[in-house]
Design a binder for these strands. Structure first.
Lengths: 226, 226
DNA sequence: GCGATGCTTCGGCTACGGTCGAAGCATGAA
DNA sequence: TTCATGCTTCGACCGTAGCCGAAGCATCGC
């Protein structure tokens, strides 16, 4: 079995935390620049450059030169499928790990994931948006529908700003506590920001937990019916 | 995206060559002992022990104690699916990598893969055995049929010895140069051993290439028609 | 009981690979 | 042209993780 397609070098590519973060960010299907990926991975530009060169050499990502930017995306469907299956295994392992200790319930209910809402509330919002067809699944990710844009605008969000930002508008992010999806991307971030603006919730000190006010919770339930 | 199931530790487990070899060996679906896996990975017992402990901790493999042996197998279908998808990506990358430089043609034709025949000859033998229904696909691997056993016996192989050995009799091994399967496992090893015994081929010095004699090649073609 | 076998733990060595700062190329803007 | 931005290359540092030999536990066979 020394022959066969040896998975070690491929797996090793995804095995580094910095590269794994980059790949996870690219799972949205969007093409991101080297700088964006560096920020996503939490490393400096030189380090990111080295990582991206390796991912490229390993056939995991494809690059598109455009002006002085370099956009990176996953090489093909196969790579995306592989990452997906890794997430499945990781989620299962993580799930089992979470089983013994009933983790902080506040974190399970609502927490901040990078810059958007995760946990039970995050999953509920995601499901609600999908049920209302404000958000639809597309090849390679999620898309905001016309009615979805109107909904966000009515919610007090500057939808036009999404166009300006290079960041993907909608991104489904797998929730480690629920093993379901919640909304990431620019829209996910904007929704959380708006909720904080309206004082529906506040961030707990020194924690990623988000605490809803009674009033905020009621309004959330009305806005995002199960 | 800091949340989500983080794939890095999982991928890192499969990213080490020794562990990758172990996992690949377990892909047959069989349960193997620590010693067997150590040999498969080409490391000493202590090293293998450490690797297996890590794989276990990561939820990739399950262990079954039986007497003074410890049998290891893949934890679940999800892990197998993940490894499968990795092999797909690896094969694709390997294929592309092989494209530019026409690699050593002798290696492409016939080479030793661990202890069995790989390359064009290996694939041809595999296809021929399948076409004759000496070998059939089953859930989780290949099986030698009754007529297949008779065929091997007529070829001069001690089929009864397969039972004694704990090693899986038939195993399909993906060929990196052909991107097709060839036969591994005890039967694959026995077939190659018998061919060497009959002087159909010899191993090239300091290489994994196998050189067929003109006579051996003719007999091979007759024995394993395309 | 006693040795043999299978596996694990321990200690120490080594090397590979990730990391960064500084400098070097490109490309686009002024 | 000249400057600014985006990215890469270079050089050096450091930590982690793989590796083995020897010794230590278990379990089995006699």
């Amino acid at each position: 079995m020394k022959d066969g397609p040896c998975i070690a070098p491929i797996a090793a590519l995804a095995g580094d935390p910095a590269r794994a973060n980059m790949l996870a960010a690219l799972m949205s299907g969007a093409a991101l620049t080297a700088s964006e990926l560096a920020a996503e991975a939490g490393v400096t530009a030189p380090t990111a450059s080295a990582h991206l060169a390796k991912l490229k050499a390993g056939g995991m990502i494809a690059v598109l030169k455009q002006g002085r930017h370099r956009y990176f995306r996953l090489a093909d469907e196969g790579v995306a499928a592989m990452l997906e299956s890794m997430m499945e295994v990781a989620a299962r392992a993580g799930h089992l790990r979470a089983r013994p200790g009933p983790r902080d319930p506040a974190l399970r209910r609502a927490r901040i994931c990078y810059d958007h809402l995760a946990g039970e509330f995050g999953v509920r919002m995601f499901d609600s948006l999908v049920a209302a067809r404000y958000l639809v699944h597309r090849r390679d990710g999620m898309t905001l529908t016309r009615s979805g844009e109107e909904f966000l605008a009515a919610f007090g969000i500057d939808v036009a700003a999404f166009e300006a930002a290079r960041r993907p508008v909608c991104k489904a992010c797998l929730d480690w506590s629920m093993r379901r999806h919640h909304l990431a991307g620019a829209a996910g971030a904007a929704l959380l920001a708006r909720m904080r603006e309206m004082k529906w919730l506040r961030r707990e000190r020194d924690s990623r937990a988000l605490l809803f006010t009674p009033d905020g919770q009621a309004k959330f339930r009305r806005q995002f019916p199960a």
